[in-house]
Structure formats: structure tokens, C-alpha cells
Design a protein around this nucleic acid. Sequence first.
DNA 1: CACTGGAGTTATAACTTCTAACAACGATTA
DNA 2: TAATCGTTGTTAGAAGTTATAACTCCAGTG
Lengths: 216, 216
Amino acid sequence: MDRREQYREQTRQEAKRIALEQLAAHGLAGISVNAIGKRMGITGPALYRYFANRDALLTELISDGYHDLADTVEAALARARNGRLRAAATAIRDWARAEPHRYLLLFGTPVPGYEAPEHTLAAASRTMAALLSAAGPDTAKPRRSALYRQVTAWGERMGYGELSPRQLHWGLTVWSRLHGVISLEITNQFALSGVDPELLFKAEVDALAGWWTPES
Amino acid sequence: MDRREQYREQTRQEAKRIALEQLAAHGLAGISVNAIGKRMGITGPALYRYFANRDALLTELISDGYHDLADTVEAALARARNGRLRAAATAIRDWARAEPHRYLLLFGTPVPGYEAPEHTLAAASRTMAALLSAAGPDTAKPRRSALYRQVTAWGERMGYGELSPRQLHWGLTVWSRLHGVISLEITNQFALSGVDPELLFKAEVDALAGWWTPES
DNA sequence: CACTGGAGTTATAACTTCTAACAACGATTA
DNA sequence: TAATCGTTGTTAGAAGTTATAACTCCAGTG
């Protein structure tokens, strides 16, 4: 990489870093081109040399977030020997708790202009693939249902190996339930109940882990 | 109510109605005082006779949303004879699908300045109480755990009748899982899988209904 | 009829994003 | 070495935002 390109990349990263700080401190509206520039020691319009516009900057923050989350989950799974679901789930929750504004940037209210680019969808799929790798063995014979037909098509399209429909459905359910309990926790919606969100989270993870045993 | 107060209230309602339209069309940033005023045939600053500031208007939209949702769920439960959980859950989902921007205003990324006023918390509790009224009978003898201690304290504080810890935990779980699957649906995050969100939703409701039977 | 208070107006300040025109500086090339 | 060119920064300005202040106007009341 060219020397100038290095400086350029460095400047871009600094802008994004400061943007995330502003996001954490003052919300999405706090990401102001002028404010970021000021904190970098340059004027606002100078930033337009690095980003086409404010939306482009936001879009990069979102893409970075997806990749960061996928990396985190994959790393946690690489470390885990058993209890793979718990490891992945805890990694997601910890990531969300450490930077709730970032989690909400990805999964909260959508940013109006944003359309996910290709490689971002790939990162999202990596996270899902990681979750699916924690699925238990499916011994039951497959039933026929609209849901199972659809998840089968999805699994084939994404190339999710030899997973059964039940395992694929489990993957979507894992994601849905984790998102439910995590997003309510970081938006403080459990505060009204006074219940420790961690206990609710663990109960959900246990329920998901028990998906494979209560073959009754 | 005074005649002038009636007009005043009418104007306030019109402003909020238009604000919701702007929210649906252009997101939170689309709620502009000037834009609302223009659509009402008055200038922007005139609206400050009716709302202290833009945040106050947003706050009212949120409060109205909580009450509207609670009303909807209670009405659905009043109609339902059996399948009370399904009735309540479907009511929430339908409400969210009909006005996703409103659902996200309540449960998506929090609006920076907003702190829920007292009567809003009451409306949130009404929704939870409605859900809890759909709990099945709990015949098992109560175990001891940190979670059960905490939900018991919550139930006593809120006056949720004679519900067991298991039923209270179920209520929080219902809310968490429904929020998970509904919020992912309306933010289109299931689109990548191509799976019909309704099937995932129904599967979650079935699982929650089955909470009381798999006493194995 | 006079008066008072609410509801609207315009003007203005201080922000915002973003474009255009211009200056300066570093690296490459003749 | 000297000229040129591209990149990065600047300031100025347009068009938008929230919000306040000052002013007008009109309806209802005593």
C-alpha cells in the first residue's frame, strides 16, 4: 500500500473511531461531520475527502460491526471445547453489553438510508454459521412442513453443510431468542421487573440447549 | 373542556398524527417541526405553542404507543375465549406489522433524551399483565433459585395476583421471545433466510404454549 | 367598548450537511 | 533542477434544522 494511502486509511479509521464515541455518547444524531472533524483537528468539510457523505460513514460503521461481531463469535467458538452454544451466546451478549450502541446500530431501528452491501451479508451469514455449528445431533426423522421446506431451501442456498431442517430451524430460533433477551437487556426494558437479565439470558440458553434432549 | 381547549387538543392530535406519518415515511429524522407545521398550514415555530420542544412531541408519541399497544392486547384478550396466549401474541405481532416504525419507536433503539413517565410505565405493565393472564396452570412445586426469588419480588411489587414464580418467569420469557421474533421480522432480518417469519412466529408461540405440558 | 390572552407571524441565532472555489504542499516527471 | 499534478486542507455559502424573541391580530370577557 502506498504511503499516502496508509495515511489516508489511518485518517478514515480515526474518523470512524471518533464517530463510534459520539454514537455512544450522544446517539446517532451525535454523529456530526463537523463535530468529528473538530475532534480530529480539521474542519468538517475536510472529511468529505474521505467519505462520500455522512451516510457512507454510517454504512461503514454498520459493516464493521457485522464483521466485528462475527469475528468475536468465531473466536469464542474456537476457544470453546464443549458448551459451544453457551460460548457463542455469551460472546454475543458480552459484545452487545460492551457496546450497546453498536449492537443497536446493527439490530435496532434500521438506519433509513442503509442497504446492506454484499460482504456485510456474508458477515451476517458467518455469525449464523457459527451458531449453527453449535447445534446438537438430530436423530429424529424429519417431518414435513412448510417451515422445514423453507429452511431446507435456505440451508442449500447458503451451503450450510448437512444440517437437518430441525437444526436449521433451531439456528433461526437461537438467533431470535438471543436477540430478544439481549436487546431488551441493553435497552433496559427489564429494569421495570428488577430481575437480573443475566438469569433470564441463562434460562434462555438452557432452553435452547435442551432443544435436543426432551425427545420425551 | 373549554371550547378553546378543544381546538387546542385537536391541533395537538393533528400534529401527532402527521408526525407519525412522517416517522413512517422518513424515519425519526423526518419528524421535523417545520415539516409538520407546513403540512398543517402553519409555520414551524407556531407548533411551540403546543409542544415545549421536539423531544416533548416524541415523548408523547412514545407514551401514546404504549397505551395503544396495551389497549390492543387487552381488547384481543377480551375477545378470545381460549388460546389466550395465541390471541395476545398475534395482537402484538399484528400491531407491530401494521406500524413497524411505531413498534420500533417503543422497543427499538432508545430515543436519546427520553425517560418514561409514570403513566407510561403503567401502560407497559398493563401489557405484561395481559400476557400473564394467559399463563397456564402451574402444578409443579416451586424450586428455589435466584431467578425465582427475583420474579417473586417483582410479582409482589406489581401486584400480579397469585402467580407462581414459574408463571412470572414465563411472562418475561414470552415477552422476550415475542420481541425477538417480531423485531427481527419487521426489521427484515429474516429476509436473508427466505423463511416466512409467520412460521417462525407460530413455532415460538407453540413452544411457549407448550411450556406447561412437557412436565415429561 | 376596552382589554386581555392565545395563536399565529417574521426575524434571527446557532446549529446541521454538503458543494464550490481556492490555497498549499508533496511527489512525480520532464 | 524545475514544472506540474494530485491530494488535502481551507473558507464561503446554500439550504436545511431547532428554538427563541418580538410583534400582530383576533376572539371572548367584563
